[in-house]
Design a protein around this nucleic acid. Sequence first.
DNA 1: TATGAATGAGCATTCATTCAT
DNA 2: CATGAATGAATGCTCATTCAT
Lengths: 209, 209, 209, 209
Amino acid sequence: MGIQERKEREKGRRRQQIMIAAKRVFSFKGFNKATMEDIASEAELSPGTLYLYFKNKDELCASLSLRILQYLNIRLKHVSSEKGLEPEQRLDTLKEAMYDVYEFDPLILINMFRLQSSETLNNLSPELIKDITELLNSSLGAMASIFEDGINKGVFIDEKPLVLANVLWSLFSGIVLWGESKRIMDKGKNNLKLTLEIPFEILCRGIRK
Amino acid sequence: MGIQERKEREKGRRRQQIMIAAKRVFSFKGFNKATMEDIASEAELSPGTLYLYFKNKDELCASLSLRILQYLNIRLKHVSSEKGLEPEQRLDTLKEAMYDVYEFDPLILINMFRLQSSETLNNLSPELIKDITELLNSSLGAMASIFEDGINKGVFIDEKPLVLANVLWSLFSGIVLWGESKRIMDKGKNNLKLTLEIPFEILCRGIRK
Amino acid sequence: MGIQERKEREKGRRRQQIMIAAKRVFSFKGFNKATMEDIASEAELSPGTLYLYFKNKDELCASLSLRILQYLNIRLKHVSSEKGLEPEQRLDTLKEAMYDVYEFDPLILINMFRLQSSETLNNLSPELIKDITELLNSSLGAMASIFEDGINKGVFIDEKPLVLANVLWSLFSGIVLWGESKRIMDKGKNNLKLTLEIPFEILCRGIRK
Amino acid sequence: MGIQERKEREKGRRRQQIMIAAKRVFSFKGFNKATMEDIASEAELSPGTLYLYFKNKDELCASLSLRILQYLNIRLKHVSSEKGLEPEQRLDTLKEAMYDVYEFDPLILINMFRLQSSETLNNLSPELIKDITELLNSSLGAMASIFEDGINKGVFIDEKPLVLANVLWSLFSGIVLWGESKRIMDKGKNNLKLTLEIPFEILCRGIRK
DNA sequence: TATGAATGAGCATTCATTCAT
DNA sequence: CATGAATGAATGCTCATTCAT
C-alpha cells in the first residue's frame, strides 16, 4: 500500500468521522439549529477542520443524503439482480431493504427534501448534484425493474413500472415522515415498522392481480 | 354587538392578514430564509406589530399549520357526515378533499413537519400544541369513520379503520413531499395531481374487497 | 417642518455620527484591522445599527471618501468662481483649499486609493461609484479651469489645463502619502504643511511664464 | 566555499523564490486578499516552509519593500556617482531610474505605505525596520546629492537639496498612486509613463534657474 | 394600538500560524 | 529541512425581538 493510498484512506476516515458527528447533531438539533461548532466538537475536531473536508454546511448535509442513497442503491441493485426469486419474494426483500435504509438513517427524508429545495441547491458543487441525481434515478430504476418483472410474469397488474416505483417512493416518504412526526409527538415510541409494513401490504394488494 | 366583540373580530382580521402574508413569503422564500421584516412588509405592517398578534416566528408558522388542519378537518367532517353516499363515492370525495387541502397550501407538509420537529416545539405555547394535536386526531378520526363505514357495509376489507387512516395520511404526506420535490427538480411542471391520483387509486384497490 | 423632514435629518445625523466614529477608528487602526464592532462602540451604537445606514464595511469606507470629495469640490468650485482674482491669487487660494482638505481628513488618499482598488469596487453600490466618479472629474475640471484662466491671461505657460490639474493631483497625492509616512515614522511630527507648500511653490515656478 | 556558506546561499535562494511568488500573488490579489497558502503554492512550497524563512506575513511583505528600496538605492547611487554628467543629464538618468523602479514593482508605493502604517509596524522585527529606514534615508541622500551638484554648478535654483529630494519623492509617490488609480479606473490603459514624465518635466522647470 | 429604530447574540467561514511526522 | 493537516481565534453580517414614542 503506497503512501498516497494510505493518505486517501485516512482522508476518507476523517470524512466519515465528520459525517457521523453531523448526523448525530442534525438528528438532535435539526439542520438549522445545529451549528458547525456543534458538529466540530461532536467530532472532536476544530471548526476549521470541517472546511477541509466539506465546502460548507449545505454540502456537509448533502453528503449525508448521498451516503444514504448509495446504501439504498446497493440494496436495491442486490434485490433486483438476485436470481430465482418470485416477484412476491422480491417485494418482500424490497420492503426489508427500505426498512433498513430507514434504520440506517431515520432522517433520510428530511435531508432528501432539504437537498432538493432551492434554498440549498445553489450552495452545492455541480458534481455532488450530479451524483445525487444519478443515484436517485438509478434507485427508481431498480425499483421499477422489480415491478416490471412481476408484470412480465403476469403476477402484477399491468401498470407502468416507473409509475409504481414513484408511488412506492411516495409511500415510503410519507411513512417515514409520518413515522417521524409520531416519534416526536409520542416522544420515543417507535411505531415506524408497523406503519411501514401495513401500507406496503396494502399497496401490494393493489399491485397484485 | 358590543365593543369588546368588535375588537375581537378586528383582532382576528389582523391575524388573518398577517397569516396570509406569512404564507406568501414562506412559500416564496422558505421558512428559514423568510424574515419577519419580509412578512411585515408583505402585510403592510411594521415588524413590531407582528409580535402583538404572534408570540414569535415559530408560533406564526405553527398557526399556519393550524389553519390548514382546521380546513382539512372541516372538509373531512363534511365528507363523513354527508348522508346517502356509497363508500366508494366517499373515497372519491375524500380524495378531492385532500387535493383541495394541498391546493389551499402546498407547503402544508413541510410546515406540518417543521411544526412537529424538536427545533420548533419548545417555542410554542402549550395551548397551540394542544389545539394542533386535537385537530390532527380529529382529522384521523374522520378519515377512519369513512373506512369504518365501508367495512361495515362489507365493501372494504376488514382492516382497522384507524390504521387505514394513518396509512392514508402517510400516503398523502409522501405524495405531497414527493410531488414538491419533483416540482422543484422539474422547475414548474406540476405533476402533483397525477401522483396524488395514481397512488390513491392503487391504495383503494388494496382496500376494496 | 414635517415629520418626514425631521426624520430625514435625524437619519443624516446618525450617518454623520457613524462616519465620524469610522474615521477615528480607521485612522487609528487602519481599514483592515478596524472591526465593525470597534466602529460601533466608538459610535456608541450596536454593530447591527451600522448596517441600517451602510450596506457593508466597504461602503462605509467609501462614504468617507465621498464626503471628502464633496468638501474638496465645494472649495474648488468656490475658488474658480470667485470674480476679480488674479491667476496667482487663485493659485494661493487653491493651495489653501487643498491644505484644508488634508486637514479635514488626513487619510484622504489612503481611502481614495482603497476606493479605486478592484478589491473594493465590487462591494459598492453603482450609485455610490457614480457619485464618486462624477465628483472626482468635477474636481479635476475645477482645477483645470484655474489653470486655463492663467493660460488665457498669458500668465501661465501654455500647457493643457487638464494635464496640469492631473499633475497637481498627483503631487497632492504624493505629498499626503509621503507626509503621512513621515508622520508615522517620526511618530507625531507633522511636516505636512511644509511639504505641501514647497512642492506647490516649485510646481508653480514651472507653471509661470 | 565552506558548507556553512553554501547553506547560507541556498537559504538566500529560497527567500528569493518565496519573495518572487509573494510579489506575483500580492500584485494579483492585493495584500489582504492574498493568503499565505496562495503564496506557498505559487512558490511550489508548503505553507509551513514560508515560516522557516519569514517570521510572518507582514515581514514577508516588508521584505519585498526592502528589496525595492535596495534596487532603488543601487540605481540612485549609480546615478550620483557617475562622473562627467551634466546636472540636466543626471536628472534624465534619475527619471529613468525612477521609472525602472516602478516597472520593477508597480505596487511599490502601496507596499511602502503598508509598511509604514501602524497596522503593520508592530509585527516587524526591529532590525528590518532599521534596514528600511536606513535605505530610505540613503536613497533620499542620493537624490539630494544630484540636486546639490546642480545647485553648486549654478544650474539649479538654490533650494535645500534634501527638500528637493523629498519633493521629488512626493511627486513620484503621487504619480504612481495616481497612475495606478487611473489604470484601475480605465481598466488596462497604462498612462503611467506619461504622467511620470509630464510632472517631472514641470517640476524640473521649477528647479532650473 | 402601532411603529420602526435599535439591539446584540449568534454563526458560517477564513486563514495566519503551529507542530508532529 | 520540509511538510501540510489541524487549529481556533477572529470577524463581517443577519435578524428575531424589544421598547420608547
